[in-house]
Design a protein around this nucleic acid. Structure first.
Lengths: 202, 202
DNA sequence: GTCTATAGTCTGATAGAC
DNA sequence: GTCTATCAGACTATAGAC
């Protein structure tokens, strides 16, 4: 997804400042809810100057989406047949929970996009994402067939890992309101380990 | 949350038509992403006529939010110390999953609001919602103390039920892309029963 | 109660000086 | 490359006829 136009160092720096500011604003207000003015201010630039680096508001949003999708799926790609089944899955859960804690803006950006029907990444979901999930579901099926973990539906297992980990980023406001501001992550890590161990341990 | 002004039958009918249309549009595009024109068209009314029944776009949105919050929490209110612990919890999971299937628009409306920091219902989250969850966490603690279910953090248990069930409504697009359009709910119901049984059965 | 017309505001994007 | 000024379109909401 990288553009081919050559760029100077200052251009690269400004572009990444804008993307950082865009992530900040878009993740909080969504695409329609964000204004170019907001992003420009967050980036410390004037509106026309921002639009000198990106042709449009949508271009910023699209670049964020596509460049983040890969990173977001890296933990799932790392799920491999090599190691022991259950520790491998628990590792995946832990990595996803770490990402929810360390990159909540990225999580919310995707959540907002998917919540609205994923109009801009539908193809990626039906293409790359589906292919990747199909592949990993196959790995899980092998583990089940080999008796390494209990029999569960591999797709719903993956959905449940996504749902449970991303919940702590996407619904952060609600979690914090209920817990009264107490850090949810230590408790979440222990709970999720317990949950997936009791579900999968043969 | 009902207004006190007296209304004729036709007023009530038009108001509920507008709220229905508002739910349709707001749940898909969020507050900022929705226009009064869209809602008016969905309701089969002209824009000024719609604004004759509601003072503003925000008034429609607010009425939807507050009138739906109660319904949304009903299944949790129904979680009581009466019956057996595990079946009671599995019933709650099933009811929440039924709501995700039957009322996905309501689920998405809340998800969008919370995703953006719940600016309009923060008080309700820190008040009524927290009180209710605290109360039900206490019920769960009693079950644990009585040895009726295994020891888990009650708050994370409740969060996990929310996350797992609402995922099928809120991230419907993603679930469908991965499953290729296959109905996820029968599989989800079986998977979630398996998951919470293995987690909680003493 | 419902409509057409429009006021007034916000916002994405551009023109053009420096 | 960056700024000020500004345009064009979209949007919420209202005025006023019927």
């Amino acid at each position: 997804m990288t553009k081919s136009a050559p760029r100077t160092r200052i251009q690269e720096k400004n572009r990444s400042t804008i993307l950082e500011a865009g992530l900040d604003v878009f993740s909080q207000f969504g695409f329609r809810g964000s204004t170019v003015d907001q992003i420009a201010e967050a980036a410390g630039l004037s509106k026309p100057n921002l639009l000198y680096y990106f042709p449009s508001k949508e271009a910023i949003y699209l670049e964020l989406l596509s460049s983040l999708l890969d990173t977001w799926l890296d933990p799932l790609r790392a799920l491999n047949d090599d190691g022991k089944a259950l520790p491998e899955i628990l590792d995946y859960v832990r990595r996803k929970l770490d990402m929810a804690r360390d990159y909540p803006r990225e999580s919310r950006l995707f959540a907002g996009e998917i919540l609205q029907g994923a109009p801009r990444i539908e193809d990626a979901l039906k293409g790359d994402l589906k292919t990747l999930v199909d592949e990993k579901a196959e790995v899980i099926r092998h583990w089940i067939a080999a008796g390494k973990i209990k029999e569960v539906d591999p797709y719903h297992l993956i959905f449940s890992i996504w749902a449970l980990t991303q919940h702590y980023a996407d619904f952060d406001t609600q979690v914090n309101a209920v817990l009264g501001g107490q850090d949810p992550f230590p408790g979440a890590e222990h709970y999720l380990e317990q949950l997936f161990t009791s579900l999968l341990k043969p």
